[in-house]
Amino acid sequence: MTEYKLVVVGAGGVGKSALTIQLIQNHFVDEYDPTIEDSYRKQVVIDGETCLLDILDTAGQEEYSAMRDQYMRTGEGFLCVFAINNTKSFEDIHHYREQIKRVKDSEDVPMVLVGNKCDLPSRTVDTKQAQDLARSYGIPFIETSAKTRQGVDDAFYTLVREIRKHKEKMSKDGKKKKKKSKTKCVIM
């Protein structure tokens, strides 16, 4: 069974824990209790493949930012979460993405942009803004509501699919490099 290491990042209060708990335990946590770091595991079937999701729910508070490099190193894919009623959390996505790329030393890291709290009427981040940002990053965008469960499975499952595509691409690139290195030079 394939294991996928997913990391949920975003500013404090955007609903990272609520999304994760909704996926794992099928219930909505409405009281806000700032996370330092929590880890969850769940076995699911995605596109006919049974897999184990190892999900790291991270601290959004700035005082825990020193811990970010460590979990970013171990993560295979990242859910970059903002709240649709919090423009600052949307603007912060850029910083999370840049930090992930720096730590992973790669421009090509599996990510999904997630606009959470889409059940709320007080939207300050337009869907088109988020779609445009995701398009500019070359990553999928999904709106979710941890409260109603809308888009929750889709967000995590899409990230797994992005990781699969990335692994497939990397193995193809690896095979191309191996083929090239088999060419021999004969000096007579």
Rank of each mutant, 00 (worst) to 15 (best):
G77C: 14
S39L: 11
I187N: 14
Y4T: 14
G77L: 08
Y157D: 09
T20D: 14
A11Y: 07
K176G: 08
K180A: 08
K42H: 04
D173Y: 07
P34A: 02
H94Q: 13
T2S: 08
V109P: 06
S181C: 09
T2L: 04
K179E: 11
Y64P: 05
T2N: 12
T124M: 09
E162C: 05
T124K: 11
L133T: 06
T20I: 11
I55W: 00
V45A: 06
P121H: 12
K128I: 10
Q150V: 09
P121T: 13
A155S: 12
R123L: 09
D105W: 01
I21G: 05
T158G: 10
V14Y: 13
D154C: 07
M188F: 05
P34E: 01
Y40R: 01
V29A: 06
T35R: 00
K165V: 09
D119Y: 09
L120K: 12
V14T: 12
F28Y: 05
E31K: 00
K104Y: 14
I46G: 05
N26R: 03
L133Y: 09
K147R: 12
Q99H: 14
P34W: 00
F28S: 00
V7L: 04
K117D: 12
G60S: 02
T74R: 05
D30Y: 06
E162W: 06
I100R: 04
R68M: 14
K88V: 11
K16N: 14
F82E: 05
I21T: 12
K169V: 05
Q70I: 00
A83M: 05
G48P: 13
K184P: 08
T74S: 13
I21P: 00
R102I: 08
K16H: 01
V29D: 05
D154W: 07
K128T: 08
K177A: 08
D154S: 10
T50D: 01
H27I: 11
E107K: 12
V114G: 01
S181W: 06
Q22N: 08
V8R: 02
I187D: 15
F28L: 01
C51A: 10
N26C: 15
E62S: 06
I55T: 10
E37R: 00
L79P: 01
A146L: 01
D69P: 01
Q70C: 01
D108H: 13
E91D: 10
K104S: 14
V7F: 15
V160F: 06
F28I: 01
D69E: 09
K88H: 09
K179M: 09
Q43E: 02
Y157N: 12
Q129Y: 13
E49C: 05
F28R: 00
D57A: 00
Q129N: 14
V8L: 08
T20K: 02
C185F: 09
Y40D: 01
M72W: 05
V109A: 10
S181E: 10
V112K: 04
Y40C: 01
T35N: 00
I142M: 08
F82Y: 11
G115N: 06
I36D: 00
K180W: 02
I46C: 02
V14D: 14
V109S: 08
Q22C: 03
C118N: 12
R73T: 10
L23T: 15
G151R: 10
G75Y: 05
I21W: 04
V112P: 04
Y4K: 05
R123E: 12
D105K: 13
H166G: 12
P34T: 01
T58P: 02
S65E: 11
S65Q: 06
K165T: 14
E3I: 02
V9C: 05
T58G: 03
G75P: 12
P110N: 05
E76H: 04
N26G: 05
F78C: 01
I21Q: 08
D38V: 01
D132I: 08
Q25W: 04
V109Q: 07
D132V: 07
E63N: 03
Q22Y: 01
V112Q: 02
C80W: 10
T158A: 12
M72I: 14
L19T: 11
S181G: 15
T124I: 09
V9E: 03
S39C: 12
V9N: 01
L120S: 12
Q61N: 04
V44P: 01
E63H: 03
L19E: 12
V45D: 03
G60I: 15
Q70A: 00
G60Q: 05
V9F: 14
K88W: 09
R149Y: 13
K178V: 11
M72D: 02
G13K: 08
S65R: 02
A18I: 05
K165F: 06
L6M: 12
V8Y: 04
I187C: 15
V103D: 08
T50M: 03
M72H: 14
A18P: 00
V14W: 02
F28W: 07
K117E: 11
C118L: 13
I187Y: 15
K101T: 13
E63D: 12
T20V: 06
V125D: 09
E63C: 02
R149A: 06
R149V: 07
L23S: 15
I84G: 14
K167S: 12
F156A: 10
S65W: 03
R135A: 09
A59G: 14
K5P: 15
A130C: 12
M72A: 15
G13M: 11
E3L: 05
Q70P: 01
L133E: 13
A130E: 10
E31Y: 06
K176Y: 12
V14N: 08
L56H: 01
D153Y: 04
G60A: 02
K182W: 03
D105P: 08
A83V: 02
D173N: 12
E107F: 11
A66R: 03
I46A: 03
N86W: 02
L23Q: 13
P121Y: 09
Q70S: 01
V152I: 09
D38T: 01
L113E: 05
D153Q: 07
K176I: 08
Y71D: 15
C80V: 13
V29Q: 07
Q22T: 08
T127V: 08
E3P: 08
G151S: 09
E37T: 00
K104L: 14
V81G: 07
S136R: 07
H166S: 12
L6E: 02
D33Q: 07
G60K: 01
K169E: 10
R41M: 06
V112F: 05
E62Y: 04
C51V: 05
Q61W: 15
L19I: 10
A130Y: 13
F82V: 05
M67Q: 00
K128A: 10
Q61S: 13
T183P: 06
K178G: 13
F156E: 08
T35E: 00
V114W: 01
T127L: 08
L113Q: 03
V186I: 13
M188S: 14
D132L: 08
A130S: 08
S136A: 12
S89G: 12
Q70W: 06
R135W: 13
T87E: 14
G15Q: 08
G174A: 06
V160G: 07
K184Q: 14
D54Y: 07
F82A: 12
T158V: 10
D105I: 14
T50L: 03
V112W: 01
K42Y: 03
T74L: 15
Q131S: 11
N116F: 03
V186E: 15
Q70T: 00
V112I: 11
A66Q: 10
D69M: 06
T124P: 09
M111S: 01
P110Y: 01
R97V: 15
E3M: 08
V109I: 14
V7R: 02
M170R: 15
V14H: 13
S39W: 02
D92N: 07
L113Y: 09
Q70V: 00
V125W: 11
A11K: 06
G77V: 12
I24P: 00
